[in-house]
């Protein structure tokens, strides 16, 4: 088999960049919905790496893992958005810094 034109390393590097961008979103943004979107971005970055390794190893396991991650992500989004909606009703805000309950 001839080596693929785009090496696996490039995919992994791209995946890392997207992942860290998602991480920055989680850390720096305060809007809960945006944080959620950033988490989705991180998941997609991981998916990309998985698919790349699946091609490299010639087995389908990586792709199946991507499939499962997508499914779980869908469940997570449904529950997470429901939580955001529920919180919004009481706090009238989607800012996660408003969520803290600890008294100093």
């Amino acid at each position: 088999m001839e080596p693929p034109e785009v090496a696996t390393e490039l995919y992994v590097l791209l995946s890392a960049i997207l992942f860290i961008l998602g991480t920055l979103g989680v850390l720096l943004r305060r809007n809960a919905i945006l944080i959620f979107m950033s988490v989705e971005l991180m998941l997609n970055a991981a998916n990309l790496a998985l698919a790349a390794f699946a091609r490299q190893w010639g087995t389908l396991d990586g792709q199946l893992l991507v499939f499962f991650v997508m499914t779980i992500a869908a469940a997570e989004v449904a529950v997470g958005l429901a939580l955001i909606v529920a919180i919004f009703r009481t706090k009238k805000s989607t800012d996660i810094d408003d969520l803290h309950l600890f008294k100093n």
Binding site: T23, L27, L99, H100, F102
Partner: peptide, 13 residues
């Protein structure tokens, strides 16, 4: 233990 999610996320990272 600040109670702010983002500081926790930073620790995780």
């Amino acid at each position: 233990q600040t109670g702010y999610v983002r500081t926790y996320a930073l620790s995780v990272l």
